[in-house]
Amino acid sequence: MDKAILQVKDVCKSFAGLRASYNISLELYPGEIHALIGPNGAGKSTLIKQISGELRADSGSVYFGNKNISGLSAAKRAHLGLARTFQISSLAMEDTVLQNVMLGALGSRGNVFRFFGPVLHDKELLDRANDALARVGLDQQAAVCTAELSHGQRRQLEVAVALTLQPKAFVMDEPMAGLGGSGSRQLTSLLDKLREEAPILLVEHDMDAVFALADRISVLVYGEVIATGSVDEIRGNLEVQRAYLGEEQ
């Protein structure tokens, strides 16, 4: 197998004695979707935040490419090509859909400190933004105010913003959260195609989506990875069934 694009090594994090991450190690290889599952409170979001840079690990390190990025800010990590989407949409609600994707395009190009030229006339950014919107199927909504989008459309927009970064890897925190059947299927087929472009570390509760998409699955329980393997391996793993799947089904 190729070299891992994203590698988490022995990461530990606790909050006031509460263990949120304990010796977590996992890899994300080119071309794969690596799903991270686990019951509520298992520490999935905490791990995502340590990967994206919003939280610092107490110990252990995160490698991106060959670079140790453990000490970098979230903005720097994003700039290196690590794109994350949020569990709770954190879009600029008063802005239009187009403005939201323009922000992504702007962030990845750099050069924010331009005070005069109207940003919405910037051809290069516009092309990139419209391209991302078309790929998630929001091109008809470009001029709509983000607050007026449906929940599903906001999830699509989250992905579109990540696309504008032209990232080397995606980290997605529950992109399907709150989506209905058809919305979920639509996003599943989008992510399915996306893995060719850049691998995805996918935190997800929707098991249909996980089993349909994942090349590999890691199971997180009480801050520890108790198993990593293919879909079939995880399905057959008794410990996983006891800790997680059995609980929910």
């Binding site: 954190s90 609600m93 962030g107 970064l165």
Partner: peptide, 12 residues
């Protein structure tokens, strides 16, 4: 509106 978003696209 959303400082976390700005950070996530690579801008401080």
């Amino acid at each position: 509106q959303s400082p976390g978003r700005v950070q996530a696209v690579g801008i401080r």
